[in-house]
Design a protein around this nucleic acid. Structure first.
Lengths: 209, 209
DNA sequence: GCCATGATATAACAGTGTTATGATCTGTCA
DNA sequence: TGACAGATCATAACACTGTTATATCATGGC
């Protein structure tokens, strides 16, 4: 029905980008709960209806922000994959992941759970998420002995992701309520380092039968 | 629309419990997004104002559900702590944690992030959460060599929790979008088993400097 | 020139949490 | 028993939310 390429030259292109930028900024500053259609429209200098002309309502904007977050994550993992040394690559990937989760906390929460309102990512958005995950699998595969199967890579990528995401999630939501945790970031990096070392040495006892 | 006889004896006591039960049921069936004040009131056979008489509005109801979830978790961990063998205790704790996350998914999501609307747990609610966490620390302390410090116990309890919560969180939110993961539960239990074994053997390389 | 199409603005609708206001009922005390 | 105090009730209103409808306006193509 709509052909974005042709409209991009006229005027809807920039305004669409401006709406997205406004939404992203509001999301960064005030979180998902304060992100209303009217607020986005006002911030972008557009009528409320503009959100429905250029996007598919709030769903569409959330979808774009969701994709934006996963594209950022994919770029970070690609950057890590360029490092030749597998352990260094995995470490950089971990570090960039943590930085992204910290700098774009609201985006991160939109990506992982917290489906604000009734938001569900679209098919294409989920494809972006999947692509980021595949890059993580590559990062893990690089780390492990070559004779391991793809299924093994996938298992350990999920375990690695779960550990990392678990830390981020707990930090974002429970950390202020927990007994004083000094050097949280250091502990996370140390734990992930240990995990990387174990994977590199193939020391995963009952991992694959 | 008069109130029936049976509940007229002592008004505020049972009705408060009935509201909470109705909210909990609606949360289980329809999730946080469909949990409106009017829906709770209707389900409980109470006027909308009843939510504000017996609770402090929606915040209060969410707070009660939050506490309910963490009390359930604490009971599960207490049950696990009764097992004499440390490894078996940790394994049972893991299993009960996973069951709770599955059977009360919406409660779990309310407890960990997804602060629906502008919900923030109260002081007492956070105390309940902290108590559940302390039981987890006990479960970990039981597992580890006695000469380790309390700080070490805490670090590993957090790492354990992060791994477990990470799995649950990914399962709840990303699993349907990931490439086919057969035997997810089995993988989780295996990973946690490995972690338990490492902790029991004191095999935590760079964990404490 | 004109018309058609898309973006705009305004308003309205249904829903949300919350507050205000009397009316009704309960328990207590004189 | 009778009456007052306080809690609980129903109803309505307010300020929001996302969304839809409608009418005005500007622009591009013939």
């Amino acid at each position: 029905m709509t052909v974005p390429e042709e409209m991009a030259t006229t005027r809807s292109g920039p305004t669409k980008a401006r709406i997205l930028a406004a939404a992203s900024q509001l999301l960064l500053e005030q979180g998902t709960t304060s992100l209303s259609v009217r607020a986005i429209a006002q911030q972008a200098g557009v009528s409320t209806m503009g959100i429905y002309s250029h996007f598919d309502g709030k769903q569409g904007v959330f979808d774009a922000l969701y994709r934006e977050g996963f594209e950022r994550l994919a770029r970070a993992l690609e950057r890590a994959l360029k490092i030749p040394d597998p352990r260094e690559a995995a470490r950089l990937g971990t570090q960039l992941y943590l930085e992204l989760a910290q700098d774009y906390e609201s985006h991160y929460r939109l990506m992982f759970g917290e489906r604000a309102g009734r938001f569900e990512p679209s098919e294409t958005a989920r494809a972006d998420a999947l692509r980021a995950f595949e890059l993580l699998v590559q990062l893990m595969a690089k780390l492990m002995p070559v004779r391991n199967s793809g299924a093994t890579h996938l298992c350990h990528a999920v375990a690695f992701w779960a550990q990392l995401h678990g830390y981020v999630s707990l930090q974002q939501q429970m950390l202020p309520h927990l007994p004083a945790q000094q050097d949280w970031d250091k502990q996370v990096l140390r734990t992930m380092d240990d995990m990387i070392e174990r994977l590199a040495q193939g020391d995963v006892p009952g991992a694959q039968r």
